[in-house]
Design a protein around this nucleic acid. Structure first.
Lengths: 222, 222
DNA sequence: ACAAAAGTGTTGTGCTTACACCCATGT
DNA sequence: ACATGGGTGTAAGCACAACACTTTTGT
């Protein structure tokens, strides 16, 4: 009942990865522009090949570090895409993962060195994507939604101080719904994970708003 | 960034599948005895190879039907196991899925025809398993736990009438905890999914107990 | 003065948990 | 008669959703 891939010409296993960034008010995802056919000149999720001496997670971490310079994240599996028609050229099975990277660290110097055209896209401004990448992205966001109140996990990727409105905007963009301001604040505050930095944001509104960060001493589920 | 598997000798993609059966009082899983090395004569999860013209889900459904005779189920992805050391012989990447099959239909005639040694194991009586199959199984049960109160999904696989005690025993074996009898019953009854068949079970206890089935007209999430 | 965002409490509903006794029946 | 599992209700706590007004400050 085992199939050896050597017997399948042009059968390819690849990894598609949704690299998310939790910015002050918006969820963003990193896309790269395809150079070759098919879908040349179309934005797509970064695609990674698997090499023999590494697990998928190791490959993802190494390749993302090499190509984009990001470190310290945990890839999470979101699906396997194996429809034989998804790539017209040959059998292309894609393992889909997502990761979040630190929003302080979202410059794309590394990708420029590698001559990769890469850019961040806010989640409500996603262009047409290659293959079934849009579906992959949508499914990944669904799984991301399940993690947003897991503060030990989320807080790793939000280093910059934020107002509660910033955070609510971010959560609304992930959940794709409006949240009630009072309920949202109470929920976060009772999670006991926020620390008031004492600093104020004065530029985004008339009234000053408090800047928070996540407490260092949250320990948790991950 | 794409890797063509042709360049990787002995790189194998396989599917491991946890086939669960929701019996009257216990969760069971189907295991097969390996004939060849490594782990010959050891119980293992059924392993399936992927062929080019099918998606993983299609392959799983076809192979399970061929080998075991089960139909009408939906495979669900539970993980990708890609540790390069998990199989000492060669690179063996395993996609893990689970499915539930109808407990009325759990005879293993088909597997005997194929000269497969296969058997059902109650979940608290799992023997040593080949490779990392135990870990795969444990992770699959974790995901199964999330689905047990999704009655539209679960009810597809429980056709036989059951007492509430039967059902509670089953749920306790999946969750691996004791449940409170009154709370369990109230929860199921308020889900509005149970129909009293009017028939009674007289053999498992002194007092007669009502036999229920799931309502036909549940529609839902899946 | 006014526009714009910050900030703040209460109430109802439903889900979850904990908990103990009587009933029907087979032996 | 008694042992066995079947069956039942209540109360407390918690999470969640709905909802509107005052405050501060830049213009």
């Amino acid at each position: 009942m085992i199939v050896d891939n050597r017997f399948y010409s042009r059968q390819i296993l690849s990894i598609n990865i949704c690299i998310f960034s939790l910015n002050l008010n918006k969820l963003s995802v990193l896309l790269v522009k395809k150079k070759k056919e098919p879908y040349s000149n179309t934005w797509s999720l970064p695609e990674i090949g698997l090499i023999n001496k590494e697990s998928c997670e190791q490959t993802i971490c190494r390749e993302i570090k090499n190509n984009f310079g990001f470190e310290n994240f945990t890839p999470r599996l979101t699906g396997v895409y194996s429809d034989p028609k998804r790539d017209k050229r040959f059998r292309n099975i894609s393992l889909a993962y997502y990761t979040i990277v630190d929003e302080n660290n979202t410059s794309l110097k590394e990708s420029k060195k590698h001559n990769l055209e890469a850019d961040w896209f806010e989640i409500d401004k996603i262009p047409e994507l290659a293959f079934d990448n849009k579906e992959v992205l949508i499914n990944s966001i669904e799984l991301l939604k399940d993690k947003i109140y897991d503060i030990p996990f989320i807080s790793q990727y939000i280093k910059q101080p934020f107002t509660l409105t910033n955070l609510q905007n971010l959560y609304e963009s992930i959940l794709n719904t409006k949240l009630d301001k009072r309920n949202f604040r109470r929920k976060l505050l009772t999670l006991n994970c926020l620390v008031d930095t004492g600093r104020k944001n004065t530029k985004d509104s008339h009234k000053k708003s408090s800047l928070f960060k996540f407490s260092r001493k949250i320990k948790g589920e991950n």
